[in-house]
Amino acid sequence: MKNPRSLVLAGLRDTVPMMVGAGPFGLIFGTLAISAGLSPAATLGMSLFVFAGSSQFVAVSLISAGAALPVIWLTTLVVNLRHALYSATLQPHARDWSAGWRWVLSFWLTDETFAVVENHFRTQGRENGQWYQLGSSLGMYLNWFFWTAVGVLLGSSIPGLSEWGLDFAMLATFAAIVAPQLRQRPILVAALAAGATSLLLHGLPYKLDLMVAALVGVVAGLLAEKLFRPQRVATEVA
């Protein structure tokens, strides 16, 4: 069970549920990017070269809002910071990997692959783990590209799709991701602070309002965490 070939297949198989979950988002991303004015090549290029779902969604909404380049880049960085945590968590399992493996698997490190791979290393051991992670990564990567392409086809073949109010898909997606987290009080505080700030500052040039609001939200969350410390510990244990 520890030879490379079966490990690649095992990684792929364990990632299938994640691929099914990511599919619709790839499709929505492809469609939205086209209606936001990206060319089909640039839309596919973003999925191929950036390969970070949430950042890609945020970038498309920023592009259609007319944000400045540095704001888009900086937001991408902020939205991606959680990957540093995944990188740190996987690092002890990667001691035997060559530099080449580390770079390649870093490029493909997503929320989904992290969840699958970290669970596997912890419960099944890390022997030849790079092959397992390769299987998971390739599954996510090809799946994301495929569904982006389907979205691009849909977006470019239906005329006037941009007037259908598809931008609502982004709102619905973001709201559906955030809402369940609001059960944790510090996160609720972070969201309220960020939302209020972005409404107050709405219209600042280059979408700077977004960066300021996100920062205010994070600081508010950290402060609230101090106030609600007992509850936070309880939710983390659960």
């Binding site: 909404s61 973001f174 709201a175 609001l182």
Partner: peptide
């Protein structure tokens, strides 16, 4: 821990 909720809400509210 607070980045997703902060960034996404900041995007959602004005939209």
């Amino acid at each position: 821990h607070y980045v997703p909720a902060a960034v996404l809400t900041a995007l959602i509210v004005p939209m």
